[in-house]
């Protein structure tokens, strides 16, 4: 078992040295991910370290060589020229992937993309579904939406209501128990949702905004220390929400038939096919035991009210 410590207890120098020497590993939820950076110390200190410090300060990291990891994510220039001249960065999860090179100052986006790629495509112990998860005392809420559907804003809003963040990007389900597994990384906010979340969560909870990225403006709502403290605590799924944010839409909730929910969830999974029977059984469990609702709303308040009403049994 490697020794690991919260990132806040590891010095800048040690983190940078470990990143360049392939010895930095992040221990979060069920995964140990090795991180590497192929840049000089100044570049790492300026562009990568601040994001790690802001978003992962209470997450455990190890800095020893030879730690067994689930996967490795390397941050590197797309070619030698772009390491030095108008430097760029790409996430390299260790397999061929057509990543768009980003300017080096977008290193936080590259790192988060790299972590997403490795979870989505290299983890086969769990069923992975694209969707956020928060949990209350009586179970977890799966929030499944296409990009831009309002998943992350709703996740952040529910955090504000006292729900624990399990994950923003991925619903991670243990096929043995059908429990939701926590992986509380920062919540990725895009464009208008950044100000919306700032307005109720406070400016101090949001990272600096990256503008003009391929996805527009991006910022991260930090996972709270309490979310990270509970990263080994699983939750039983209680509810599935398919949210759609539409400006000025009247709030509406509709029960989704089980078969329809399954048909929506299967294509949202990044590894359903690879898991075979285990993945099928999880999907059937969700369809059989967990109610799913489609909600349409035009404001954060409306979305929270709809979820409150659903949980209170006021919407059938």
């Amino acid at each position: 078992m490697p020794d690991y410590y919260p990132l806040s207890e590891i010095s800048d120098r040690h983190i940078i040295d470990s990143l360049t020497a392939d010895r930095l590993s992040m221990h979060l939820g069920p995964f140990v991910i090795g991180l590497q950076a192929r840049y000089n110390q100044h570049s790492i200190k300026t562009h990568i370290l601040p994001h790690l410090r802001r978003c992962y300060k209470t997450v455990n990291f190890s800095t020893q060589a030879g730690v067994l990891t689930d996967s490795q994510v390397s941050l590197r220039a797309p070619n030698i020229l772009r390491q030095f001249i108008r430097p760029q960065i790409i996430p390299d999860p260790g397999f061929e992937f057509p990543a768009l090179p980003l300017p080096l100052h977008m290193a936080p986006l590259a790192l988060e993309m790299g972590l997403n790629l490795t979870i989505a495509l290299q983890m086969f112990r769990f069923l992975i579904i694209h969707g956020g998860v928060v949990a209350g005392d009586d179970g977890g809420i799966i929030i499944s939406a296409e990009s831009g559907g309002g998943k992350s804003s709703l996740t952040a809003a529910l955090m504000q209501q006292g729900y624990r963040l399990l994950s923003d990007e991925f619903t991670i389900i243990d096929p043995e128990t059908c429990e939701l597994v926590a992986y509380p990384r920062p919540v990725s906010l895009k464009n208008e949702s950044i100000d919306a979340v700032k307005s109720f969560a406070g400016e101090h909870t949001i990272s600096p905004v990256l503008t003009n990225t391929p996805k527009g403006s991006i910022a991260y709502r930090y996972a709270r220390p309490s979310d990270i403290d509970q990263h080994q605590i699983r939750a039983k799924p209680k509810l599935i929400i398919f949210p759609t944010f539409k400006s000025k839409a009247l709030p509406k909730a509709k029960l989704v038939e089980s078969a329809d929910a399954i048909v929506r969830l299967i294509p949202s999974s990044t590894n359903y096919q690879a898991l075979g029977e285990a993945g099928y059984k999880v999907m059937m469990h969700l369809g059989t035991h967990i109610k799913a609702y489609e909600i349409t709303y035009g404001s954060t308040e409306a979305s929270l009210q709809l979820i409150h009403d659903i949980l209170a049994g006021q919407i059938e």
């Binding site: 038939e257 399954i262 029977e277 099928y280 059937m284 059989t288």
Partner: peptide, 22 residues
């Protein structure tokens, strides 16, 4: 195969191909 029914719709998982059919 495994088969599960949800009202008029059923899902069948074929172990040999690994495919799920509606």
């Amino acid at each position: 195969m495994l088969i599960n029914h949800f009202g008029e719709v059923s899902f069948a998982f074929h172990r040999i191909s690994g495919d799920t059919h509606m």
